[in-house]
């Protein structure tokens, strides 16, 4: 498919139209920070190099989702939702969607999560290229392209004052149009440098996990902002005879995450919890899905009040592994 060139006014005019058909989600200012949120006024949309504070995973995996209601012998399941258009997703956030797809349609589609698929199928994603790295970004060593993401429905690139739109799927075909032009030439794809090629036994007890995690206060902000963290809990709440089953986000950084019904807790120390977060992303998911579950967006690093740094941690582990081999 060819690409189209259009200026910001045309993008906004198109969005205005699209708002009739879709719930449009785009980066807008929320107080003094940028967030992916529903657009009510097209002029609020900010399409530039900034990375929104939170990841857009809430579009497919809401923080609190009612999955079922039990009432008078009936069971109500999730309902159809209006199509959602996510505009301005950064390459790192688009890359995360692929990881979500793998998780929620696990084992090559054998286990499908209907609530996830329901939202995923009604979602159209238009990516937006970055022009520069931000403080804490490490997508380059995680193999995420700055100006292209293959896993979305269309991609916008900022070239000078205007945008070049490249549709990638049928869903993204008619979103934006303009004068036809050549697609933006892709920068060389970065190598995935930051990966752990190790066995669990090589890192599980030998690395200085206590030192890595000493600043952790267990707030879980890292997992709430992470575009690929997907752990959840199911809760049943009764109110006046109606039982609602909700799916709520959970976090491996909470001590209660692994608390067993019998009272035993296998991960009581914060260093063990941090180890789980790092190894889940860099070791356990790669074992099952052939890719690492970290896109290098740097959100966890920038937001951590304790100064924990997953990039430095993994780099340090790699260094230690190499030294051990010598």
């Amino acid at each position: 498919m060819s690409a189209y060139k259009l200026d910001i006014a045309r993008v906004k005019a198109a969005l205005e139209k699209l708002m009739e058909k879709y719930t449009v989600i785009a980066p807008v200012m929320n107080g003094d920070r940028l967030d992916y949120a529903e657009v009510t006024e097209v002029n609020d949309v900010i399409l530039d190099n900034q990375l929104p504070y939170k990841s857009p995973k809430e579009m497919v995996f809401p923080r609190v989702e009612k999955v079922m209601r039990f009432l008078e012998g009936k069971v109500e399941e999730a309902q159809d939702i209006k199509p959602v258009l996510l505009v301005g997703a950064k390459p790192c956030d688009v890359a995360a969607m692929r990881i979500f797809d793998d998780i929620f349609t696990g084992d090559k589609g054998k286990f499908q999560d209907p609530f996830y698929l329901n939202r995923r199928n009604s979602l159209t994603i238009i990516g937006l290229g970055c022009t520069d790295y931000k403080n804490g970004c490490f997508c380059n060593i995680r193999g995420t392209d700055l100006s292209f993401a293959p896993d979305c429905d269309g991609f916008l690139n900022m070239v000078g004052d205007s945008f070049i739109y490249q549709p990638l799927t049928d869903k993204g075909k008619d979103i934006f149009t303009g004068e036809e032009t050549e697609p933006v030439k892709r920068a060389d794809k970065h190598e995935e440098e930051l990966v752990l090629n190790a066995k669990e036994s090589e890192v599980f007890t030998t690395m200085p996990w206590e030192a890595y995690a000493e600043g952790c206060i267990g707030c879980g902000t890292c997992t709430y902002l992470c575009p690929t963290c997907h752990c959840f809990n199911l809760r049943d709440a009764e109110d006046k005879g109606v039982v609602t089953r909700t799916r709520v986000w959970d976090s491996c950084m909470y001590p209660k995450f692994t608390l067993h019904a019998g009272g035993h807790n296998p991960r009581t120390k914060k260093s063990e919890r941090f180890r789980q977060r790092v190894l889940h992303k860099y070791l356990y998911i790669p074992e099952n899905y052939d890719h690492t579950a970290c896109t290098g967006c740097g959100r966890c690093i920038r937001a951590c009040p304790g100064g924990l740094n997953i990039m430095n941690t993994v780099t340090d582990i790699k260094k230690r592994l190499e030294e051990a081999k010598k």
Partner: peptide, 10 residues
């Protein structure tokens, strides 16, 4: 801690 933008516990 340049990533966070202010010094963090040590």
């Amino acid at each position: 801690n340049p990533e966070v933008g202010w010094p963090t516990p040590y």
